[in-house]
Amino acid sequence: MTAAQTVPAPSAPRPVLPDAVLLQVAGLGKSFTLHLQGGVRLPVVANVAFELRAGECVALGGPSGSGKSSILKMVYGNYCADAGSILVADAGGPVEMVGAAPRRVLRLRRERIGYVSQFLRVIPRVPTLDVVAEPLLLSGTAPEEARRRAAELLARLNLPERLWSLPPATFSGGEQQRVNVARGFIAPLPLLLLDEPTASLDAANRQVVIELIAEKKRAGCGVLGIFHDDETRAAVADRVVDVIRFSA
């Protein structure tokens, strides 16, 4: 199983990225084959190409079903790409995400790429504060410090303090989403993927998220996002990449 998934052989030319480019997507294609429905093939996107630079926020635009989330998930290594390349800047040089070994992907997620999904995947029994602090703990921050920063973020996102010690399983959609946002924003990772981070938030909390994204950009972070409302997108995005161009 490993042979097919390892990084390119040493003889292959090493990919390079222009300065300040954190992410370069080229020729990326994805389709689903639904074996349970007689093997019907659902094309999603083809020839996706864009770049993301440090300090920049790029929004993926297009109607729902156009493949925005799929692109985000391929960049995170959550979906397999059929074709193309996703180069992610890493300390030791760019890494090809397409076909990378699972361990390589996990390390990129730990060290380079943060991801805020639409829904919080709840871990049973873990208190909210620890759910949020976990990415920091994983990158080696002391537990006290990690919890302090988690508390800071939760406070900014107006999550009532009495909820912090509870597992988020029973929280409302908006509360869970704020936990999810806090968890995604806490670690200082250079590349942040956001899948409708403000979808179930009220105006005040949406504003907090907009500020958080602006802070990430100022810190030199590259943000790739899907934003359902025009207001948020206009507030944070430097460019919009229209995914319709890549429809397969």
Partner: peptide
């Protein structure tokens, strides 16, 4: 075989 979330979210084999 592969990354757990990838295999479960984007399964390929029938």
């Amino acid at each position: 075989a592969g990354l757990t979330d990838q295999v479960l979210d984007d399964p390929h084999a029938p």
